[in-house]
Design a protein around this nucleic acid. Structure first.
Length: 933
RNA sequence: GGGCGGUUAGCUCAGCUGGUCAGAGCACCUCGCUUACACCGAGGGUGUCGGGGGUUCGAGUCCCUCACCGCCCACCA
C-alpha cells in the first residue's frame, strides 16, 4: 500500500507538469521572447511557465540532460527535512525550502552535480492527532473505525495533503529532483526500518525492557523525552504525615515523618520514604518503616543523596512507578515499583478503593481522606513545571511499560567524535555547545509507540515469550529461539517513533540497505539544512544511525536556520491566528519576493520577524531589476541591429570609458562579495549585497551615467556600443548572482537578454560568474564625480531651487581630475542639472563667480553654482553646518596625531591614514571658509 | 539551576579577525510625472551603539559585571 500510493503521487505530479507546459507554450511571456519585455514584473504571469520550463528541460535531476555538470567537481548533496504530511506548508517550511533551493541553485551554477532529494514524513503522532480531529467531525473515533479502517482513512487523507504540499513547494520554486520523491512510509523506508532495527538488535543496541516512559493519556501512547514540554504552573505542595511503625510491634504509631508532594494520588504507589543521608533531623529514622495510607503498605525510610534538604520537609515519598527520580532511587535501593494507573490515567486495581477514578479526581479524594485522618500537615501554592504532551498538551504521566529502547551511549559518543574532529561542522558554531551537552547527557531512546500510523516494530513474540526480530517483510518463518511456527507468533502491536524512520533518511532514500550506486555517489551528503528546533529530534538521530549503519557521517555540514516569527516576535501558530500563508504571500508579491523577504537581513541560526513590509521590499526589488533590464534592452543603440544583439559580446576593451570601467569594477566587487557571503553560508548577506549593488550602484549610477553616454550624439558609435554591451554584461552578471535567491524574475529576464556563445538556454544551468579585478583608480575618480553631482544636488535641494532649473556652474578642475571631468562633463550637466559648466584649471578663478553663488565642495572638485542672491543666503547655513562638522572632525584627528603614544604604538598605515585625513579635512575646511567668504 | 542568543535611528536589522563603522531598508519630511521603474527619482532629520567597570594609543567591536527580553537544557518532590 505504502509504495503504491507514493508512486501514484509522483506520476501525477509529472502529468500535471506536462499539461502545464502545453498551456505555457502559447504564452510569449512565459517563453520570454528575447529582446522584449512586458511593462512590469507580474510574477503570476510568469512563474508557472518558468517552472515548467525547468521541469521539461530536466535540470533538477543530478544526471539530467539539462545540467551538464563539471565532472571535476564533487557532487553537491543537500539533505532536507521532509515536511510532515499533515497539511499546508507554513512560513517555516518556506524558509527551509528557500535556503535549500538557494544553496542547490548556487551549487548547480558552480557546476556541481547536485542532488536534492525531496520527500515527506508520515509524522506518526502528529498525523494521528490531526486525523483524529477530522474523523471526530465525521462522528467517528479511532476505536469505532478499528486499526485497519483507520489506516485506510489515513492514506486517503495524506494522498490529498501530499498533492497540496508538493504544489506549494513547486510554487516556491523548489528545484528538487522530483523523480526521486520519497516518503517515510514507502516500501523503501519500511525496509530500511526493518533492516536497521534488526542490525541494532543484533548489535545489542536495541533492547526490550520494562522502563519508566512518558505516557500521554490523551494520545494513548508513550512519547520521547523531547516530546514532553515542561510548562510552568501553580500547583499545590502538600505536606503529608506518614506514620512510623513501632519497631517492636510493627504497628503504626503517632510518631510521623512528614513528606512533601504535589501529587498525592501517587501515594498509592509509594515504596519508600527518602531523606538526605546527612540530614540530622532524620538521622534516627533511616532504616525504620512507615505505613503508606490506604494501601496499608509498610515501606522503609531510606537515605539518598538526591534528596534536597532545603526543599519541603526534607523528606520525600518515593514512587518508582510514577516518577523519574524516584525510579532511579528505586533502582539504587532495590525498591519495588508499583504502577497505579491505567492507559487513560485512571487509577488501576493497585489503587484499592480509588480504582477507576481519574487521576485528578483520585487526588481530591485522597486529600479529603487524608484530612479526615488528620494527616495533612499543610499545603501551600507551589510554582512548578508540569510536563505536557507536545501534541495534545495533556499532562504526561511517567509510567512503567515494557517497550523497545535504543541504547544511545555508543551512538552518541561516535556522533560527538564526528563534530569534535570537524568531520561534520555545525553552522553557526555556537550550536556545537548545545549539541555536546545534549549528546553527553542523553538517555536511551524509547522508540515504541502505541499508535497505528507508522512502521510496525518488526519483533515477534512466541507463546513462550521468546523474541524474534526480523527484517523480512512478511515476518520470520519461525521463532528463532524455539522454532515455533510463524502462525504461533504475534507481532508487537506497537509502531516506531516517527523520528526513527526520519533518522534513516540520508541513506534510506538512496537505496540502503542495498549497496547502490546512489549511496556510493551521494553519501555522505554535503549539507544538511534545517531549523535549530529539530537538532535533537532529527539531526542527532541521523548522525547516530548514519555512523552506525553506514560507517560514515551522513553529512559534512549542519546548517541551522532560525524560526520565523510574527512582527511582534511571537511564534506563529494557528491558535494565535498570526500565521502567514506562504501561498498568499506568493499570490500577492510573487515567490521571489517571499524568498527575498525570508533571506534578506537574516543570519544563520537567528530568529526573524516577518512582516508585510519585508515582502514588499522583495517585490519592489524584483520590479526594479525588471525595469532596469527593460531599459537596457530598449536602449540598444541603432548601430547594433537586432540580429547582432542576439548574441552577447564582451564590450570592446579599447572603447571602454571610465563609466564602463566603473560598472565592470563594481560588478566584479559584487561577485567577490557574494562569493564570500555564500562561502560563509551567510545568505542574508548575499541578498543584501546584491540589493545594494543592483539598486544603489548599478541602477542609480551605472545606468544613469550610461544613459548619458548612450544619448550623447557626439560619441563615437563604437564607444556607444561598448557602453551598451557593458550594461548587458553587468546585467548578465547580476542576474546570475541573484538567481539562487530570486530564480523566477532572473530567469525571465535572462531569457530576454542576449546570451553569450556557449551559454545554455536557461539561467538555472548557466555558470556562476568569476570575479575579475577591481579597478581601484577608476572607482576613486568616478567616486569623485558622483560626489560632485551629489553636492550640487544637495545644494540645490537645500536652498529650494526647482529641480528643472538649469544653473551655470563655475568649476575648479584640478589637473589630475581633468580627464575624468572631460569624460563626465555631459553626465555632470545632465544629472546635476547644471549648464553651462565653466571649468577652471586655477582655483582662484572661482573668486570671479557671481556674488551669491552656492559653494560646492566635493573631494578635489570645488565649484560655484550660480543662483539668485536670496538662495545664496539660505545656502550659508548649509555651508556653515558642513564647516562645523569638518572642523570638529579635523580637531579630533589633530588631537590624535598630537598624541605621542598613538604615533608610537599605532601601526604605520593607521597613522598615515590619519595624516591623510588631516590634510583632506584641512583642505575642506579651508575651502568651506573660502566659500563663506 | 546550567547554557545560548538578543539589547545599535520610530520599526526591522547589518556592522568579519578592535582604528573613515556609526550604516541599510521601511516609516517620516521636502521637492519631482528628467525618454526603465511612483512597486519610482532627488534631497533631508533622527542614534551618549542597554547600564557600569576594565584592557588598549584607540572599543558597538575584546574582558568582567548588572539589568531586561527570548530560547534551549535540567532529577527540586
Amino acid at each position: 500500500m505504502a509504495d503504491g500510493t507514493t508512486t501514484d503521487a509522483t506520476t501525477d505530479a509529472t502529468t500535471d507538469a506536462t499539461a502545464a507546459t502545453d498551456k505555457a507554450a502559447g504564452d510569449p511571456a512565459a517563453r520570454g521572447a528575447r529582446g522584449e519585455l512586458p511593462k512590469a514584473w507580474v510574477p503570476a504571469d510568469h512563474e508557472a511557465g518558468l517552472y515548467e520550463r525547468w521541469l521539461t528541460a530536466d535540470v533538477f535531476a543530478p544526471d539530467g540532460k539539462g545540467t551538464n555538470p563539471d565532472p571535476s567537481l564533487p557532487p553537491f548533496v543537500i539533505i532536507q527535512p521532509p515536511p510532515n504530511i499533515t497539511g499546508a506548508l507554513h512560513l517555516g517550511h518556506a524558509l527551509t525550502f528557500t535556503l535549500e533551493d538557494t544553496m542547490i541553485r548556487h551549487a548547480r551554477m558552480l557546476g556541481h552535480e547536485t542532488l536534492w532529494l525531496p520527500g515527506l514524513d508520515h509524522a506518526s503522532i502528529a498525523a494521528q492527532y490531526v486525523l483524529d480531529r477530522i474523523i471526530a467531525a465525521e462522528g467517528e473515533t479511532r476505536e469505532s473505525l478499528g486499526r485497519e479502517r483507520y489506516l485506510e482513512r489515513m492514506w486517503r487523507f495524506i494522498n490529498e495533503t501530499r498533492e497540496v504540499m508538493l504544489a506549494q513547494e513547486r510554487r516556491l520554486g523548489v528545484s528538487a529532483d522530483w523523480g526521486r520523491l520519497r516518503f517515510t512510509m514507502d516500501e523503501g523506508s519500511a525496509r530500511a526500518v526493518r533492516v536497521s532495527f534488526k542490525r541494532f538488535y543484533e548489535d545489542g543496541l536495541a533492547y526490550r525492557a520494562e522502563g519508566l516512559i512518558n505516557w500521554c493519556p490523551g494520545c494513548r501512547t508513550s512519547v520521547s523525552d523531547l516530546e514532553v514540554i515542561p510548562k510552568p504552573e501553580t500547583g499545590t505542595l502538600w505536606s503529608i504525615r506518614y506514620h512510623l511503625l513501632d519497631e517492636a510491634t510493627g504497628e503504626p504509631t503517632d510518631e510521623t515523618i512528614t513528606v512533601a508532594t504535589t501529587r498525592p494520588e501517587t501515594i498509592l504507589g509509594d515504596t519508600a520514604v527518602a531523606v538526605h543521608p546527612e540530614d540530622a533531623r532524620y538521622e534516627g529514622l533511616v532504616g525504620r518503616k512507615v505505613r503508606i495510607p490506604f494501601v496499608e503498605r509498610d515501606v522503609p525510610v531510606i537515605a539518598d543523596g538526591i534528596v534536597d534538604r532545603e526543599f519541603g520537609t526534607g523528606a520525600v515519598k518515593v514512587t518508582p512507578g510514577h516518577d523519574k527520580n524516584d525510579y532511579e532511587i528505586g533502582q539504587r535501593h532495590g525498591l519495588p515499583s508499583i504502577s497505579v494507573m491505567n492507559d487513560d490515567a485512571s487509577l488501576n486495581d493497585a489503587a484499592d478503593r480509588y480504582a477507576g477514578l481519574d487521576r485528578f479526581e483520585a487526588r481530591r479524594r485522597i486529600l479529603d481522606d487524608l484530612r479526615a485522618r488528620g494527616d495533612v500537615a499543610g499545603e501551600r501554592p507551589h510554582e512548578m513545571l508540569i510536563g505536557r504532551c507536545q501534541r495534545s498538551d495533556d499532562v504526561i504521566e511517567p509510567r512503567l511499560k515494557t517497550q523497545w529502547f535504543i541504547r544511545v551511549r555508543p551512538l552518541a559518543e561516535a556522533s560527538l567524535a564526528a563534530t569534535r574532529s570537524g568531520e561534520t561542522r555545525i553552522v553557526p558554531a555556537r550550536f556545537e555547545k548545545v549539541w555536546e551537552h545534549w549528546l553527553t547527557n542523553l538517555h536511551d531512546w524509547n522508540v515504541s509507540r502505541q499508535l497505528w500510523w507508522g512502521h510496525r516494530i518488526p519483533a515477534w513474540y512466541c507463546p513462550d515469550g521468546h523474541v524474534t526480530v526480523s527484517d523480512e517483510a512478511g515476518g520470520p518463518p519461525a521463532c528463532e529461539v524455539c522454532g515455533r511456527a510463524a502462525a504461533e507468533l504475534t507481532q508487537d502491536p506497537d509502531i516506531f517513533d516517527t523520528w526513527y524512520s526520519s533518522g534513516l533518511w540520508p541513506f534510506s532514500t538512496l537505496g540502503w540497505p542495498d549497496r547502490t550506486e546512489d549511496l556510493r555517489r551521494y553519501y555522505p551528503g554535503t549539507i544538511m539544512e534545517t531549523g535549530y528546533d529539530i537538532i535533537f529530534f532529527w539531526v542527532a538521530r541521523m548522525m547516530m544511525t548514519g555512523i552506525h549503519l553506514m560507517d560514515a557521517v551522513p553529512f559534512h555540514t549542519v546548517y541551522l536556520h532560525g524560526l520565523v516569527k510574527d512582527p511582534y516576535g511571537q511564534r506563529m501558530s494557528k491558535t494565535k491566528g498570526n500565521v502567514v500563508d506562504p501561498l498568499e504571500a506568493i499570490d500577492t508579491a510573487g515567490a521571489d519576493a517571499l524568498r527575498f523577504a525570508l533571506l534578506n537581513g537574516t543570519s544563520p541560526g537567528n530568529d526573524q520577524k516577518f512582516s508585510p513590509e519585508r515582502l514588499e521590499d522583495g517585490r519592489n526589488f524584483a520590479n526594479k531589476l525588471w525595469n532596469a533590464t527593460r531599459f537596457v534592452l530598449g536602449a540598444r543603440p541603432s548601430s547594433i541591429d537586432a540580429a547582432d544583439a542576439g548574441t552577447r559580446r564582451a564590450p570592446d576593451e579599447a572603447r571602454l570609458g571610465p563609466t564602463e570601467r566603473w560598472i565592470r569594477s563594481r560588478a566584479a566587487a559584487t561577485i567577490a562579495a557574494v562569493d564570500r557571503a555564500f562561502a560563509d553560508h551567510n545568505y542574508g548577506e548575499a541578498s543584501r549585497a546584491l540589493y545594494d549593488a543592483i539598486w544603489a550602484e548599478f541602477c542609480d549610477w551605472g545606468v544613469e551615467l550610461a544613459k548619458v553616454r548612450l544619448a550623447d550624439e557626439a560619441l563615437d558609435p563604437a564607444e556607444r556600443d561598448a557602453t551598451w554591451w557593458t550594461l548587458v554584461e553587468a546585467l548578465d552578471t547580476y542576474l546570475r548572482l541573484l538567481h539562487p535567491v530570486m530564480p523566477f524574475v532572473t530567469e525571465a529576464l535572462w531569457n530576454s537578454l542576449p546570451h553569450a556563445e556557449g551559454d545554455p538556454e536557461l539561467l538555472i544551468v548557466a555558470r556562476w560568474p568569476k570575479a575579475g579585478p577591481v579597478d581601484a583608480a577608476t572607482e576613486r575618480s568616478v567616486g569623485q564625480v558622483i560626489e560632485l553631482i551629489r553636492s550640487i544636488r544637495n545644494a540645490r535641494a537645500t536652498v529650494g531651487i526647482a529641480p528643472s532649473e538649469w544653473l551655470p556652474l563655475d568649476l575648479f578642475v584640478p589637473g589630475r581630475q581633468a580627464a575624468s571631468f572631460d569624460a563626465f562633463r555631459p553626465a555632470i550637466e545632465r544629472l546635476a542639472r547644471v549648464r553651462p559648466i565653466h571649468p577652471h584649471a586655477d582655483r582662484a578663478a572661482l573668486e570671479h563667480a557671481p556674488v551669491g553663488s552656492l559653494g560646492i565642495i566635493a573631494g578635489e572638485f570645488e565649484g560655484r553654482l550660480h543662483a539668485r542672491a536670496e538662495a545664496a543666503e539660505a545656502d550659508r547655513a548649509r555651508i556653515g553646518k558642513e564647516l562645523a562638522q569638518a572642523e570638529a572632525a579635523l580637531a579630533s584627528t589633530r588631537t590624535r596625531l598630537a598624541d605621542a603614544t598613538f604615533l608610537a604604538k599605532a601601526p604605520a598605515h593607521i597613522v598615515e591614514g590619519a595624516r591623510a585625513r588631516e590634510a583632506e579635512l584641512a583642505e575642506k575646511v579651508e575651502k568651506l571658509r573660502a566659500s563663506l567668504g
